[in-house]
């Protein structure tokens, strides 16, 4: 979409911030920080998710993510990955706000180590506490349209249903529910987790998602930089196809060449 004014008019807005890119990416699972930086650059993403963890006290001189992925260039979206209770998630994001000074956060409260499926009751509780505390909450949730609506009603600034379990690469498993969530929501809806390859991202965007958030699909590709580019194109293609409006599906053929003038 480089410099294309017409497409440039299409932007993604969350918590009052405008973004050109509808691809949000994680910064985990890469070989090293150099590869992380290169892959993120290739995705064209403007928002990157980051985790909050203890500093390695025994070796504080280890390279830090911030030295490779500039928080002035990218919007850091701190997450609560690894949190299984509302209390842990809120504690983590309060620390994140102090470390970085940002209010925009990604809330995820997990319910089970095997599926990493969200615990929606804990998620609702955490969302309530965070919003009360002044956070702008982008929330990872299941593809349940009722829970999605409840999270929106609480004041979450973006609803992020999973396409499939985190890191599974299975693609959009329940397109009907994703569409139901989009149709009911007045805030941005992003598919978060479960994308495996470029076509999965395109499908999410063709459904009308405002964006896609992914990590493993890029980091675990054989060539992460190439996959990063593929994902950038897929999200743009899916968005354009959604805006263009697809043709109706038909049971029988319809010739593309005119029948008049046949010899």
């Amino acid at each position: 979409m480089d410099g294309n004014a017409k497409v440039g008019e299409d932007f993604f807005q969350v918590a009052g911030l405008r973004f050109q890119s509808r691809l949000l990416v994680g910064t985990g699972k890469y070989k090293d920080f150099t590869e992380t930086a290169q892959a993120i650059e290739a995705t064209g993403a403007e928002i990157v998710t980051v985790a909050v963890r203890r500093v390695n006290i025994s070796d504080p001189k280890q390279p830090m993510l911030m030295d490779f992925v500039d928080p002035k260039k990218y919007t850091y979206l701190p997450n609560t990955a690894g949190c299984y209770t509302a209390q842990d998630a809120v504690r983590t994001l309060r620390l994140a706000r102090e470390a970085g000074g940002w209010n925009l956060v990604k809330l995820e409260v997990l319910g089970d180590q095997k599926t990493l499926y969200p615990d929606v009751t804990e998620t609702l509780e955490a969302a309530k506490a965070l919003i009360k505390d002044g956070f702008d909450v982008m929330v990872y949730t299941s593809d349940d349209p009722i829970i999605a609506k409840k999270l929106e009603d609480l004041g979450c600034c973006a609803i992020m249903p999973l396409a499939a379990p985190i890191g599974s690469g299975l693609g959009v498993q329940n397109p009907v529910n994703i569409r139901l969530i989009i149709e009911a929501a007045k805030v941005p809806v992003l598919v978060d987790a479960g994308v495996g390859t470029a076509s999965d991202a395109a499908i999410a965007m063709e459904l009308g998602c405002d964006g896609v958030l992914m990590n493993t699909a890029i980091a675990a590709a054989k060539d992460p930089i190439k996959m990063a580019k593929a994902m950038k194109l897929a999200v743009e293609a899916g968005r354009l196809a959604y805006l263009a409006g697809r043709m109706p599906r038909k049971l029988y053929a319809d010739p593309s060449s005119p029948l008049g003038g046949l010899i």
Partner: peptide, 10 residues
């Protein structure tokens, strides 16, 4: 005391 920072994550 807990001292935390940002690391790569999804």
């Amino acid at each position: 005391l807990e001292i935390v920072h940002f690391i790569g994550g999804g």
